[in-house]
Design a protein around this nucleic acid. Sequence first.
DNA 1: GTCTATACGACGATAGAC
DNA 2: GTCTATCGTCGTATAGAC
Lengths: 201, 201
Amino acid sequence: MTRPRTRIQQKNSETILEAALEVFSTYGFRGATLDQIADVAGLSKPNLLYYFPSKEAMHQALLTRLLDTWLDPLRELDEAGDPVTEILAYVRRKIELSRDYPRESRLFANEILQGAPRMQAAIEGDLKRLVDEKSVILSRWMDQGRIARLPPQHLIFSIWALTQHYADFDSQVRAVLGPGHDPFAEAGDYLDTLFRKLLAP
Amino acid sequence: MTRPRTRIQQKNSETILEAALEVFSTYGFRGATLDQIADVAGLSKPNLLYYFPSKEAMHQALLTRLLDTWLDPLRELDEAGDPVTEILAYVRRKIELSRDYPRESRLFANEILQGAPRMQAAIEGDLKRLVDEKSVILSRWMDQGRIARLPPQHLIFSIWALTQHYADFDSQVRAVLGPGHDPFAEAGDYLDTLFRKLLAP
DNA sequence: GTCTATACGACGATAGAC
DNA sequence: GTCTATCGTCGTATAGAC
């Protein structure tokens, strides 16, 4: 999107996107305000608009960089590997992503909740293509009897739902568990067990 | 919240809440505007504020009525029944709720995503209490060897995550599956299989 | 009960001094 | 590059006629 030249520009753009992520991920696009973002970034509102032409542009910059990060773990799913190992490794990478980048997860969730008005092309394009491609691999593994026969797209949905839940519904998870819990560590173990049992032929 | 006396008031309050649900569930509290709600309701903006003292009050009215509907399926989980049958029935009721009341699901998701600022008391109170209570039942079933030993709270989280995903991420699910699919019907079958395998001792 | 008109603050974005 | 000041619009909410 924006292509800063100098190091100062680089750094300020980063600061702004970091602040924008914080605010957009909590309130969604329309609920977020430039005043809030400026406040979090420690910069003036006009200064924000010196680096990005509009509120929309900041949001777009975040979404663009997000999609790749988000899909990378699935890209790594390797047909040559052992099926169960590969899928469990994918689940583990996804739960780590939820733990380390919860705001990115919530930004994504906000966008999809609203009907993906600013990501529709990416979802119908790159994302669908990748899921289709990996579904073929999963189906082949099922044909070979190496994992249980399940609808491959729904299997992928369930990995997304279960891992992202811990980032997106973090406040609920922590409230229900009470103090003295490490939700992501527990989720890692639980989901490992869950998918082992599910995938057993 | 509001206690309308006449039938006309009843009906208008209903119309407003219906429109408010439509808008709040898509844009979240801050992203929603009274103009939009008035437009959807087919009423004037001041007329909205004749029935509800504020935007906040409309939102609160929706959340209050939502929580009961949302927790009812879990309340029905009966210790006296067969464990697997009871849990699968719960999953089925939850997926039906996602299918029939997707806007309510998204309203809830929006609220939790934002850190549950207007539901914290309910989550730490009623919701946590109910989960704790049902976790005890699940643990007893596990002690008796009637279902697999799993962390009961995370088992409940996984039911929530998997069923609500189909309402909250509906646009993504449909984009990925492409035309000619019935997401909720497929999800019903898939989740039945998933939990049967997971719960087998 | 429902409308038009409007108060008044917050919003995104711009102008222009430095 | 960064600021203060400000524009025009849209936001919630209210006043007051009917």
